[in-house]
Design a protein around this nucleic acid. Structure first.
Length: 331
DNA sequence: GAGTTTGAAACT
DNA sequence: CAGTTTCAAACTC
């Protein structure tokens, strides 16, 4: 997910969105976002400040169950609503362990779901991207990890870790496998791999692991993971690799989950969905701003402005991701 | 199951 | 930004 933070503050679109509005800077209470649960698992947001075009726009884009109420007091004392503890946060019953969307609200591909395995982290506390659970935006569940902080009992630490990851890389939680350039049929790794010794024909290679070819953006050395590679063809003829061949057939029909989602979203205009992890990450960013303001002993007014500005950046990034996934160019 | 290899992520 | 270290998964024996 591309929630803004750190060096990402001058993000594209932020200025154009003109957030926060002037009237929100003079000590007014923070806007409240109420997200009523629905039997279908999602519904439109109810925005308390409907006179605010940004909030209205948010309401059009966000569609999640539960209720998230960001009050001034909560931000002041750091008691942001959390999945585990907040009396004002009512998640769906299957929130944990069965999240089927990524941090930017995209459904997990079949590959993502299939690859969901218990982690074995020992040193990272499951709060770094080394941990697949954390990287996928999930809590650890039925894992074999030690000293795990990637759970509802350590949400403060988890928020901070998410914030730190997003500061380093605003796209840290975006799916690694994307659609590629406009017009491309097959998916490709968004960053490309950097393999040196595996020939990109072992699961060490993220491209190979995702059952896709390496592309021009890969920086691999001695790559054998390309269409006409003899080594790759030999490998594909081995019995254990039937699923890779099937995956290629799927790709050739241009029906990846990612593309299907994009197409369905185009049809539905502005309907979209974000995960709890987006909300968590956004809260983490807001909390960080509140903590910074407190640390610097800023006035409540300034603190509110900082938080609102951060909120605006988060919204900007969420919308950017949304536009990007729908193929809408926003500059 | 233990040890080794690998490359992404994190750090300097 | 490049080089180094850390980390956990993949792999080998």
């Amino acid at each position: 997910m591309a929630v803004a933070g750190g060096n990402h503050r001058a993000s594209r679109g932020y200025e154009a969105l003109a957030w926060p509005p002037a009237q929100a800077r003079d000590g007014a209470a923070l806007s409240t976002i109420c997200i009523p649960a629905s039997s279908q698992g999602k519904t439109d947001l109810q925005i308390s400040d409907t006179s605010n075009p940004m909030m209205t726009l948010l309401g059009q884009f966000l569609s999640v169950p539960g209720k998230l109420d960001l009050s001034e007091q909560q931000l002041d004392n750091g008691s942001l609503p959390t999945v585990a503890s907040s009396a004002e946060f009512h998640p769906e019953p299957d929130l944990q362990g069965s999240t089927k969307v990524t941090l930017i609200g995209l459904p997990l591909s079949s590959w993502d779901i299939k690859s969901r395995k218990p982690c074995n982290c020992t040193k990272s506390q499951c709060l770094k991207l080394y941990c697949d659970c954390f990287a996928n935006g999930d809590f650890c569940s039925n894992c074999n990890c030690n000293n795990c902080y990637n759970n509802p009992l350590h949400e403060t630490e988890r928020f901070k870790a998410i914030k730190a990851c997003l500061d380093r890389n605003p796209e840290a939680f975006l799916p690694k496998i994307g659609k590629g350039k406009t017009g491309d049929i097959k998916p490709r790794h968004n960053k490309g791999c950097n393999c040196k010794r595996s020939g990109c024909l072992k699961n060490y290679c993220e491209c190979f692991e995702a059952k896709i070819m390496c592309s021009s953006i890969c920086k691999c050395i001695g790559c054998k993971n390309y269409e006409e590679s003899p080594d790759r063809k030999t490998l594909m003829n081995m019995p254990d690799y039937t699923d890779i061949r099937n995956n290629e057939e799927d790709n050739s029909m241009s029906t990846s989950a990612f593309e299907m989602l994009s197409e369905s979203r185009k049809d539905s205009q502005t309907t979209a969905c974000i995960s709890w992890d987006i909300i968590e990450a956004t809260c983490a960013c807001l909390l960080a701003q509140a903590e910074e303001a407190e640390k610097e002993a800023y006035s409540i007014c300034v603190a509110e402005q900082m938080i609102l500005e951060e909120f605006g950046r988060c919204l900007s990034q969420i919308l950017h991701s949304e536009f990007k996934s729908q193929g809408v160019k926003v500059e």
